[in-house]
Amino acid sequence: MPAATVDTAPRLKSPSWPRWVFRITSTVAAIMLFNQSVFAGQFLDGSYDSLLVHRENATWAGIAMLISAVAAVLVRWPGRGPWWPMAACIGIFGLVGLQIFLGFNRVISLHVPLGVSIILLASALAVWSWRRR
């Protein structure tokens, strides 16, 4: 099968481990961000401790997205992948920062839709990381 040989030849030079690292970091970040909605639902249901968890997990989810940004650098070098996941991670991290600010200042009318958007973006990024071969 000559076609396959031609196709895979350039890829052999780029290591596959960076995309595995990125798959893991972006998936963990997406789960942590999704769980913000779980904790929000719990404190809307009356559990005070969930508000504290929601606040703590926001910080950790932001850090997870930063770690993902580092993994995205590896996807580019030495992974030879696209550059835009780096920008995506930094961008989502920025949105998380804004989201924390809105939450602490109780701008709930923006906090909820921005939260949904962040979860959508982070999930899309994680899905992309798995679909990319």
Binding site: T27, N35, S47, Y48
Partner: peptide, 26 residues
Amino acid sequence: GLIGGIGLGVGIPVLQGLGGSTSTGN
């Protein structure tokens, strides 16, 4: 593995809070 991981990562906190809270207090 991926589905299981996501299931645990999301499912555990969901189940823990499922009962809701009938009183605010500890």
